[in-house]
Design a protein around this nucleic acid. Structure first.
Lengths: 345, 345
DNA sequence: TTGACAGTTTGGAACGTTCCAATTATTTGA
DNA sequence: TCAAATAATTGGAACGTTCCAAACTGTCAA
């Protein structure tokens, strides 16, 4: 049953007032008399009127819509990130266009263009692999606030919220060294990304600082997934001078590494130390519970959303780069007693 | 730098034609002369014109926006579901409002209302726990197509895409019986949900069919999460006549059950059979690889989206109930040889 | 020369809201 | 009692698009 849609004029007519008055009621203006407000409210409910925010947006040329574009929703890190954003966006009375790009930069371009046509007030983007500054330039120049999250795009002057990969990786490596490990590998991740580079440098710097070997063969890159972890650990196990522990690019890789170790009859957390990165929810409950660098994706999502809303409300704003503090959560995957070490970025 | 936004009138003026002509060009109408089309196209690019879809929607009173509301994005089952929908929605040229309700029916009501005000053309909803038919009645009555996915809402005449929980559970139980198990439990899930009820009946019916005990004590409900699985398996282990295998409400519960078994020094897949439900991505790579009832969440998401789009395009439509075929994927968590058994719904 | 016709182009009214300036009704102060 | 102030309401223009009916340009046949 298709209702003939009821507008503010219909309401006005039924309530015996003008459309202007109805509009004032809708905006909760204090100008309107209590009695008429009640009357109009009643009619609204009776007729089942639904506000047409599109028309309002057109008139006011502003919207309460933000865009959220993520590269991989099936990865629980990004799902958590999205949920964090969702929370603050929703409670600020905004609504979100949300799209998944599956790491496809073309698709990303399309959805961003579409969101722009729909009049989004701002965008939070976790960019797909291969996103260039040129891709985003027109949008940024148009004055629409953009916040990059989790990953950065080199050469683009825009706000961002990323985690302190260098400090996190270094802390993880120092922890392994404290436990007596002397030969440590870095496992997984695509070596052409900024995030990889940052974490890897943290890894390397900590090794050098301790006077240990930090040669290239200790860095084994692979897809940043569980399967990639399995593959990487297989390569590691075939090395001549085999490491006794590894820092992994992210938790997915770490889980894969554990799988790979186990099928080689090496028990992770007992015979071999494994540290992850991100602290996804499963890290806590896995067996063995994963020691990992916690980056609190929900928190990052929330901060990114807050930053975006701030920039939307401020007419004018400057690019701001937030780096999220990171902490090493020690669990069982490298045989150390359970404790948490706090770090400042 | 805030651009003074350029409209079709600006483009028309710059190209020396009327706004109507520009509009025709934008819609790719064949009425317009090739030369002017090119001219207008050039001007559009030059001025950096961006189409205002909101204005168009207002005039045409229709939109290419669908709403997607899910109860828990951090659960990878629902994340996959969302990704499946995203795929077909995007490639049909639609864009989506997407929101997470965290199982909060009030929040769900708010976001749906907001989406409605924004003029969504249809809604796919994976309802929060506790959603009633009355909550959704006004929306459905307004003639906006709604497709329920993964969970049903009793008493609501609306389309749905759900998996065949009964057949899946029954097949799982029969598999356990084939392996020689005679005392089998059902673990996890809230017992006041339709999904629980359906799977549990499949479980019970298969037991009865085989002449085995199907008494209430074999059904141990709990939160449908990893933690819930741990709790449920603890209760199971304290039973007098202890079962030798269990069908779990979903994969998360199954993983929790494995954790719980292991801390009691019982090796899942060797000493005790565990079967999950949903076949989340991690099921394949977990140790032991989880035998589970595969419901292909991405596929369900895609089908739901296709159904919604179909109903949006058809002016008039009837509620349609799709039940997704389900298959038992035999892996290692109940000690059986690896194979896959296909089932028809 | 005229009419018919196809191929293009166009002005203006709509869509449902907000906002401004203007209007009416009511109260106040001296 | 009347001007002035206050409170409440209102008509109409605007936002950027689409759509309709009308109008223009040629071409061609009669």
């Amino acid at each position: 049953m298709k209702q003939p849609k009821v507008t503010v004029v219909d309401v006005a007519h039924a309530a015996g007032v003008s459309k202007s008055t109805v509009s004032l009621v809708l905006q909760g203006s204090s100008l309107v008399n209590e009695a008429t407000r009640a009357k109009v409210g009643a009619v609204i409910r009776e007729l089942g009127y639904v506000y047409n925010r599109g028309a309002a947006n057109l008139r006011q040329s502003k919207s309460k819509i933000v865009g959220i574009v993520v590269n991989d929703l099936t990865n629980s890190f990004f799902a958590e990130l999205a949920v964090g954003m969702d929370m603050v966006v929703q409670s600020a009375g905004y609504i979100q266009f949300m799209a998944n790009t599956s790491e496809n930069a073309d698709r990303q371009g399309e959805v961003i263009a579409s969101m722009r046509e729909h009049g989004m007030a701002g965008l939070i983007l976790s960019p797909a692999r291969g996103t260039t500054a040129a891709d985003l330039k027109p949008l940024v120049d148009s004055g629409i606030p953009v916040v990059l999250v989790a990953r950065n795009v080199p050469g683009l002057k825009v706000s961002s919220v990323v985690s302190d990969g260098h400090a996190g990786a270094a802390a993880a490596v120092r922890h392994l060294i404290d436990l007596g490990h002397r030969r440590i590998a870095f496992l997984g991740g695509f070596n052409d990304t900024a995030v990889f580079d940052e974490r890897m440098r943290g890894f390397r710097d900590a090794l050098v600082e301790a006077g240990l070997d930090a040669s290239d063969e200790l860095v084994i890159s692979s897809a940043p997934s569980r399967a990639g972890g399995v593959a990487a650990v297989e390569r590691l196990l075939s090395m001549a001078d085999r490491p006794t522990a590894a820092l992994c690019f992210n938790d997915a890789v770490a889980f894969g590494a554990c799988d790979g170790l186990r099928s080689a009859r090496i028990e992770p957390g007992v015979d071999f130390g494994v540290i992850g990165f991100d602290d996804v929810i499963e890290a806590k409950t896995a067996v063995p519970a994963l020691t990992t660098v916690s980056v609190d994706p929900q928190g990052m999502g929330r901060r990114a959303a807050q930053l975006l809303l701030k920039q939307i409300n401020a007419g004018d704003f400057d690019a701001e780069a937030l780096v999220a503090t990171v902490r090493l959560v020690v669990r069982e995957s490298c045989g150390a007693p359970q404790r948490v070490r706090e770090l400042t970025a």
